[in-house]
Design a protein around this nucleic acid. Structure first.
Lengths: 200, 200
DNA sequence: ACAAACACTTAACCCGGGTTAAGAAATACA
DNA sequence: TGTATTTCTTAACCCGGGTTAAGTGTTTGT
């Protein structure tokens, strides 16, 4: 199962060769550790209760990452599109069963690298560590930020902010999931959109 | 203007002699740096725009510490009772005009120590520094905590929590100020109290 | 091509709490 | 002691958003 270079998102190549300065040999080696995998719409890359034993580069498609709250309701943490990484990082690092679901929303192509292979790669290509730790920091601060916004902004403000800052989400994600992501009931989101279009 | 020991809140003596281990001589010296001051109800110990040049031990009485928000509405940060310290710590340390008002709510007796005198005392009695830095830490974490509660709890929950955790406040502070402290309109607080008493 | 499933909207209703306005009760002051 | 001021309560109304229920499209799979 060789990975065909032409099929890889150019951003993937760029990230490691340009930004992190992998040599051609390093990059080629790195690639051998990945396995392509396709998952079709509605299937899961990961479910709560499973141990997350790999990272997956989302080469094509999109997905939603969610957890269940105490009442068993889904809470979407984020949507992933091309050039995102899928997984449950807590579970990955702790080795314990995780709480995250990663459900594919469009037939998708992943590049999957197992924990063992990633560890090998880290030894052989130490630059990899920098990349990953900076990624973690950014995502931790983003999630604090989101919690803050949930508490301080009204439903309408949250909707408008998302429209402004990530309009592409609305092209590909069903409104019900966007509502869930924004912590708004789908009916209420519908009403908010109605209010906004009929208001001047 | 000697300070009469019998009139000082025993907690004040205890704090410095017992908890911080001042010798009798040190404590006596420390005391000479204070000046007694009485302020009557509704007067201010401090107003926004003034530079806070002293700390004041509230020996008897009570006060409210508030700021004005962007719309000019009062926001009560905390109430002070016997054994609290009054002031605007930002202004005290920066030497710049502050934003805090400290209004006396019952005729009160203060023990005031000027910044210069406190600095002298700190040199002569180094233990003082420990006391003050630990105080600052605790109050910073309390205020973060309060902001968090404002965002996560409903008006009714905030009221019940205060009733449970600091019932003494209700003995001495007018409800309108408590409402302000809880970020509830006085009418709404009244309604909440009504709901609660008439609900079983 | 059709039924079944899914996605979205509309509407009626409820609830918490802000807003406005007015009244009742308590305090203070002369 | 009585009037004035302050404090607290009540009531009517509004608004945002959750809840329930019933549509109306729109996809999907056979």
């Amino acid at each position: 199962m060789e990975i065909e270079l032409e099929k890889i998102n150019p951003k993937f190549v760029e990230l490691f060769t340009q930004t992190y300065g992998f040599t051609e040999a390093e990059f080629a080696l790195f690639l051998t550790y990945f396995k392509p995998k396709t998952i079709s719409k509605k299937d899961y890359y990961l479910r709560a209760g499973e141990v997350c034993k790999s990272k997956a580069y989302l080469n094509k498609g999109c997905a939603r990452n969610f957890v269940l709250d105490d009442q068993g309701h889904e809470r979407i943490l984020f949507f992933a599109f091309e050039d995102w990484w899928l997984g449950d990082f807590d579970s990955y690092y702790s080795g314990k069963p995780g709480t995250n679901y990663v459900q594919i929303l469009e037939d998708s192509e992943l590049l999957v690298i197992s924990k063992e292979n990633f560890q090998k790669a880290e030894k052989e290509i130490p630059k990899l560590q920098q990349w990953y730790s900076s990624k973690m920091l950014r995502s931790a601060s983003a999630s604090r930020n989101r919690i803050e916004e949930m508490k301080t902004l009204s439903a309408e403000e949250r909707y408008l902010k998302l429209m402004e800052q990530q309009p592409h989400i609305f092209q590909r994600i069903p409104l019900q999931y966007i509502a869930c992501y924004l912590n708004i009931e789908p009916q209420s989101l519908s009403r908010i959109r109605h209010r906004l279009t009929n208001k001047h």
